[in-house]
Design a binder for these strands. Sequence first.
DNA 1: GTCTATACAAAGATAGAC
DNA 2: GTCTATCTTTGTATAGAC
Lengths: 174, 174
Amino acid sequence: MQGVTVTPVDAILERARVSPATLYAHFGNKEGLITQALQRRLSAWDRTWQQCIDAADTPEEKVLAVFDALAQHRRSLHPSRWCVFLGVTAEAPSRGPELEDILAGDTRLLADRLGELAAGLVGAGRSENLAQHLVLVYTGVLGMILRGADADTAIADGRRIAAITVSAFGTADA
Amino acid sequence: MQGVTVTPVDAILERARVSPATLYAHFGNKEGLITQALQRRLSAWDRTWQQCIDAADTPEEKVLAVFDALAQHRRSLHPSRWCVFLGVTAEAPSRGPELEDILAGDTRLLADRLGELAAGLVGAGRSENLAQHLVLVYTGVLGMILRGADADTAIADGRRIAAITVSAFGTADA
DNA sequence: GTCTATACAAAGATAGAC
DNA sequence: GTCTATCTTTGTATAGAC
């Protein structure tokens, strides 16, 4: 596996057993293909995460469900190295607005949904702040995978850190 | 700013105001240039971090000094987007052993030094485990910067999460 | 809708002179 | 050591037929 942007179109064509003309007829250009692929990925992640939230019992478990969802999401995919959204963000020099929107959409979904879930745990205006902390931990898990760490270990570590953080927010200090 | 691998050699030549032949005479090829540049970066980071550790008073502050070092390191550089080591790791399809070693060296330095510092805080075989947690949080900070978050805010958040985690390790649970 | 063949551009690297 | 000029490869995309 490797970066999306540096992957040549030829490699995709060979894998899909399709001619160039067919690909360009469907997606316009390479960025169009990437954009649509990422839209599908984001939708799949969204569904998996929501299911894990629904399956969790307590409000705290619902917040931490993002880590269970990550483990499950990875199992249902080809073993991609870390996170395709962060990967494309890191590589690409400049992007069109549609792709940019999808990439930001991943971060937005994380912050928004974690913010909603955190609202059930901490008071007033502190839920957004807790959500930012949790996005940081979640992102750290992905980064550890990029660093070559075992994915399951990284996810378990992240879940523990998140639990500690939630607990600290719940008691007293900011 | 953009990914290193996708940056064409021409752009580097123009910025350095040097001809292609000169560059290739010095570095052999593009990867050689990247390798040497990353070696310098790693050394600079190493020094900055060590200085921040030395400046810290308590063992706990020395562990958390990695976040102060990150803030300081960023101020001394062009405002690169996140982390050049993780960036190159994410982009590059396949790399030679020398570059691979430098990239792994960043993670190794983090894990090793944080492990040494953590040994002063927790008992027996738990220092390595705590170090892994701290690398995760540190990596999460970098990832937040990639996501577009304000760097100083992300660093402050990470420092707080790390402090909470260290505290939890110090008391009882794993 | 899909193919083959090919145009066009970008990028990494080198030759040979000074 | 550094330059100008250029070669070669790779990569994105399109033309035109079926």
